[in-house]
Each structure stands twice: as structure tokens, then as C-alpha cells.
Write a protein that binds this DNA or RNA. Structure first.
Lengths: 209, 209
DNA sequence: TCTTGTGAAGTTATTCACAGCG
DNA sequence: CGCTGTGAATAACTTCACAAGA
């Protein structure tokens, strides 16, 4: 089963399953069925089972899944069980600052290890515990610290250039908050989060009621 | 063609088309073909044409689409051409503040009109130009101001309660940044943005290289 | 020629439904 | 019995490919 193609949507859900399993673990719940997960998360039970089946057989017939075991398995799949992934943020504006101090990341296996801005007034200041460095240092700092994930939180006209610098620094994944498409070789995974696009999607439904 | 079911994914792309059309408009470009849009956005030309065809026939054979005209049409479809949609933010922490001052929203037809927090120390302070009010005022303020969109930027344990208050206030759409599933009647559209989930998705690919 | 709009075909994702096992 | 795991069926989405218009 392992070497089969895994839908992108399955990966996104894995992360949500993990989130819920951590809650269940906190609630001291030991076992959970796909049906129960379904009710808590709003995905169908069949989908949950199918998603998990891409990776192996983790359930116990008649019982369900061991919360702790499944949690560990998904953490392993996502690679968030070992040492925290190092992340760099480019852009120390409002959004960059909010990202830098967002506790959700450290709780989930990510550590902000570097931060950059091209504004001399911001260079040298601190975002949380990380000192802001000049953007021209991106490639060297990233290589030195072996950072593989970058977040882009700069105005849209700079985003493409920043992405190229991240690439030079050896980054393998980019979370892009700038409202533009990043064009970059497919050695790098790019995921876009455009907050206005999300709102516009909601507005579409609103405006036809 | 109008009363046919429109894929969710088409809606998301509409917003991205609009974003690009605004750029093209700034660049004084008058016409654009699906092929050109395809190259700029990374979706296939056929997909762009098909997406647009759900709503009507906007192109000119042999020429492409009028940038201004298509921009206006998509703005109309998304309902972002008329008076700005009013938005409320609940949670005046780091993320809430960043959202409140994010210029991307006002540029794209959304206006932050109310902001709430349950921390008395925050009530009365200003987020941008909006005064923070106590969360127990959510239903009344929202009804008075006729706000139909809410953003949840509170810790996860409060998110569900906040959603219910938003519902009482007559909200029709929610953009939820808290890392929990919101359970609410389907009279309300909920879209979740979990930043850690996005990062975990990237980590999945990283950890198998 | 170039380009749209669109049925048809192809692909991908989700749900069904049930065998098999505890 | 209850529940998983999964092939088969269905649904959803994307791409193909081409007629027709400028």
C-alpha cells in the first residue's frame, strides 16, 4: 500500500486528524472509531479510514484506533515528531510579527529560527526572540542554519525576489502570504495563503443570497 | 448555464483571476487570453475558460477577454464591487491586530467595522481605527451595524462559543483562524485557515525526501 | 490565423457496501 | 454484534479537442 499516490487532500486532513487526536489524548480518551472522528471533524468515516489506509493498517476491528498510537503514527508521517522544523520568516511587518509570535507553530513542531527584512529601521530589532537580519543575508543564514522552510510575508512586488533568495538558501518549502503567484522550480513546494482570497470566496456565497 | 452547480474550486480561482486582472489593469493591458492568464497563474487555459463559462460568455473569439470588463464581471460575481463588506474581528491578540491592520482587506472590498475581545485590558483600546469592545456585545453590535462576516482569532477553547455569538449577531460567513472545527448550522459558511496545518502539509513532503 | 466555449473523455477524489475479524 | 480495510461504484473535477467566429 505504501508506494501509492497520496492525494493532496489526504495530507491536509492528516494534519487535522492529528490536531483532533491531541485533543482526545488530552481528554484521556484511549480509543476512537472512524465514526467518532467523523462526528468531531465533519469528514465521512469512510474517508477517514481510506486516508489512513494509504499508510498502513492502524485500527483494531471492533475497537477503533488507539489514540496515542495513531497520534504517534501521524506525527511520524508528517515528520513533526523529531526535532522541530526550522522556519525562516521574511518580512517583519504586521503579519510577519504576528507569525513570529504565534505560539501555534512551536506547539506543533516548528521553530522560527530566522527573520529578515529589507528595511534598515527594522534590521536589528527583535521579533520574539529572533533578531531581524537584512534580507541580503537570506541565502547565507539559511544555509548555515539549515533552514528548509520559509514564510513570505512581504508586499507582493517583493515576493518573487524573496522566493528566489529562499531557493538560493536551500529552502524546500515555502508558505507564501503575498497575494501573487510564485514561479519557482518544482524542487520547492509552495503553498499560498491569501487571506483576501478566502474572504472573497465567502463573499461569493453571501452575495447570492 | 447560470443555474448549474459551481465547483468550490472554481470560486477560489475566481478570486485569483480577479487579483491578476487588477494587475493587468494597472499595467494598462487591455486584452488577455486564457493562454496568457494560464502562464501567469499556473492553471490550465482550458480550466480558466471552463471556470468563466459557468457564469456566461465573456470572451471574444480570436481576441481574448477585455481586462476591464472581465474584472468588473468577476467583481460582480464575488460581490466586491458594491459597498465594502463589513467585517468583525473577534480576538484582539497578535493575530487579530495583524488582521485589523492588514491593508489587503480594504483594497479588496472589505472593511473592518468592529472588533471584540473578552480581556478587559484590551477593551477600549484601538485596533487601527476601530475600538475594541467587550465580546458580550457581539450580537447587538453586529445586528446594529449589519455585519455579515466574522473572523475568529481567539484561542481554540473559545472559538466555538464565539461562533455562536456571531451566529446570534446574524453573521452569514466566518473565517476561522482557531485550530478547531466549528460546528454550526449550515446557514453559515465557515472557512478554516489553520496556519499550522498548512506548515504540516509542507513538512509531510519535506520529511520524505 | 488566433481564441473562445463546450460536450466528451479522462482523471482524481469520495462514498458505498461488504467481507472478514475480534 | 461492531468496526476496519478496501475493491467497486459514484461523483467531482480537469483536460482534451474541435467547431465556429473574428
Amino acid at each position: 500500500m505504501r508506494p501509492k499516490k497520496i492525494p493532496e487532500s489526504t495530507i491536509k486532513r492528516l494534519s487535522i486528524y492529528l490536531r483532533e487526536l491531541k485533543s482526545l489524548s488530552n481528554e484521556q480518551i484511549k480509543f476512537v472509531s472512524s465514526q467518532e472522528l467523523s462526528e468531531r471533524l465533519g469528514f465521512s468515516a469512510a474517508q477517514i479510514r481510506k486516508d489512513l489506509s494509504y499508510f498502513g493498517q492502524f485500527g483494531r476491528v471492533g475497537v477503533g484506533y488507539s489514540v496515542e498510537e495513531l497520534k504517534d503514527i501521524i506525527e511520524g508521517l508528517l515528520g513533526v515528531n523529531r526535532k522541530a522544523w526550522k522556519v525562516a520568516i521574511v518580512g517583519a511587518g504586521k503579519l510577519g510579527s504576528a507569525l513570529a509570535s504565534y505560539s501555534g507553530f512551536s506547539n506543533r513542531g516548528f521553530a522560527i529560527e530566522a527573520c529578515f527584512d529589507n528595511d534598515p529601521k527594522k534590521v536589528g530589532t527583535f521579533l520574539g526572540s529572533v533578531k531581524v537580519e537584512n534580507s541580503d543575508k537570506i541565502p547565507t543564514v539559511l544555509r548555515k542554519k539549515e533552514i528548509k522552510i520559509g514564510m513570505i510575508a512581504v508586499p507582493k512586488d517583493y515576493a518573487q525576489k524573496v522566493a528566489q533568495e529562499l531557493l538560493k538558501g536551500g529552502v524546500k518549502s515555502i508558505l507564501n502570504f503575498a497575494p501573487v503567484k510564485i514561479s519557482i522550480g518544482k524542487s520547492v513546494h509552495v503553498r499560498d495563503v491569501d487571506l483576501s482570497t478566502e474572504l472573497e470566496g465567502l463573499a461569493f456565497y453571501l452575495s447570492r443570497e
